[in-house]
């Protein structure tokens, strides 16, 4: 069965609703996220508080599974290098 033939899972329905709950008037796009995600990852690794820009990255990562997957991979690399 191709991906597009499968009915939605509970997780997918939940994720679209979560996506809607997190939707705001002004959001970053994936390119803007990519530009700042390195700084966000280092901030998280150092357990430092996040500023407004970093908060918007956090919000984008909660909405975007692709950017979140890449962020988690980046954290894996940074943690391996600690």
């Amino acid at each position: 069965m191709k991906p597009q033939d499968q009915p939605l899972t509970s997780e997918q329905v939940g994720s679209v609703l979560k996506m809607l709950a997190l939707t705001t008037e002004r959001e970053l796009n994936c390119s803007e996220c990519l530009q700042h995600v390195g700084e966000f990852a280092e901030t998280r690794l150092a357990s430092q508080p996040v500023d407004a820009v970093m908060s918007s990255i956090e919000q984008h990562l909660a909405l975007c599974p692709e950017c979140r997957e890449e962020f988690e991979a980046l954290m894996t690399i940074l943690q391996a290098g600690k």
Partner: peptide, 25 residues
């Protein structure tokens, strides 16, 4: 586009991961 707000290698790794995952997807 590198603004020096993170280490250069962190910024570069983020781009590398984006390149790799985009291709795999």
């Amino acid at each position: 586009q590198f603004q020096g707000r993170s280490k250069f290698t962190t910024w570069a790794q983020a781009i590398a991961l984006n390149t790799a995952f985009t291709e795999l997807r």
